[in-house]
Amino acid sequence: MFYRRQAFMTVVAAATLAAGAAFAQPDGKALFGQNCSACHQANGKGIHGAFPALAGDLFVAGPPETVASVVLNGRGGMPTFGKDLSNEDIAAILTYVRGSWGNHAGPLSPKMIESARNPGNRQDDALKMQAH
């Protein structure tokens, strides 16, 4: 039951997000606090042996598509955010990450995030998230 219900709700959520995005500029710091700080910590220093530091991280300052792709598709212990956050939200979060805690990389635009979205089977796989 959960599998299809989740899929259904994601569609609703995505529609709501898209509608909201036209009105307000998302706040990268707040969104990072909400979605990422549980693991990477609010100061971006992470937790040794579990969650990598994003402060002073070379990967974060790297090519936009590679950075965006980790957030969109997940990797290892890093969850998939492609279905839950809009391009605007992810752009704002990564712009904040790339410009905070001593990082000095340029901002990312929602367009860059859109072009990093992978329409392949990873997205279908993400839908399989279900209760146990």
Binding site: N35, S37, P79, D84, M129, Q130, A131
Partner: peptide, 11 residues
């Protein structure tokens, strides 16, 4: 909750 929602609530 699961996935990004679990990440959010756990913060």
């Amino acid at each position: 909750q699961f996935g990004a929602n679990a990440a959010k609530i756990s913060a």
